[in-house]
Design a protein around this nucleic acid. Sequence first.
DNA 1: AATGCGTGGTA
DNA 2: TTACCAAGCAT
Length: 291
Amino acid sequence: MSIDEGALLSWFDTHGRDLPWREPECTAWGVLVSEIMLQQTPVARVRPIWLAWMARWPRPSDLAASSQGEVVRAWGKLGYPRRALRLHAAATAIAAEHGDLVPSDVDTLLALPGIGAYTARAVTAFAYGRRAPVVDINVRRVVARAVHGSGEAGPASTTRDLADVEAFLPAEDGRAARFSAALMELGALVCTARTPRCADCPVYGDCAWQRAGRPAYAGPVKQVQRFAGTDRQVRGLLLDVLRGTEGPVDRAALDLVWPQAGQRDRCLDSLLVDGLLEQTGDGRFALPGEH
DNA sequence: AATGCGTGGTA
DNA sequence: TTACCAAGCAT
């Protein structure tokens, strides 16, 4: 079983979103920045930050010339701010080792910080129009349904997931890249996790899940991570204090954000270990490089 | 392989 | 309101 390329691409032409990182004039650096920002963060929240980011740092070397603190501040509340540090590190490596040009081959991209199996292939495909299986949660869900007839994707397995898509990816570079973008878009707009819009689906007629009578998902239930009360929440509150001020703050200001001293201290320490915060000579705390 | 890592919109 | 969900990565 496969996916009808013509039907999918025709649908993509009509219904694909106009996103700034899909514009023909968007650079490979712009594509890379978008892919990092979009890791676990919705398009609507990424768009304004991406626009500001690209206006301020149009090339990797521009970002590399800024401090980590400025980059973390510009990241704002996109979440998972370690991504901002990794992007800064990747930009530094690209500027220093790759002539300020984002690499185009998967293995070179994989060697950069913050770039994994998905992002490396997304950059290869979307920035350079090369053939590479691009597998994110949207693609895994579409494949699970349309190809395997399962209600949702099981646990991720890079090797298996890549092989799944490799099997039906068009052979030619440009067509493969466009096919991948369309497959992701279908998962994002139509073949959604909670309430799929099957009536609007361009591959409805070939969908294995439909043909099987839309059986309920029988695989392992994936645990939804709690947030309230976790270290993630406390780290976010601590970092938000620094984002909201210019210079270093003293400990008392950070003590206000969370009542439990033990957890607070643990989170503060982990932020220092991660390099998201630094301690000044007089014992205060600052974003990295901002003191 | 399972877990930790932010944040906010939606049903 | 709570629970789910969002273009993953590193360890």
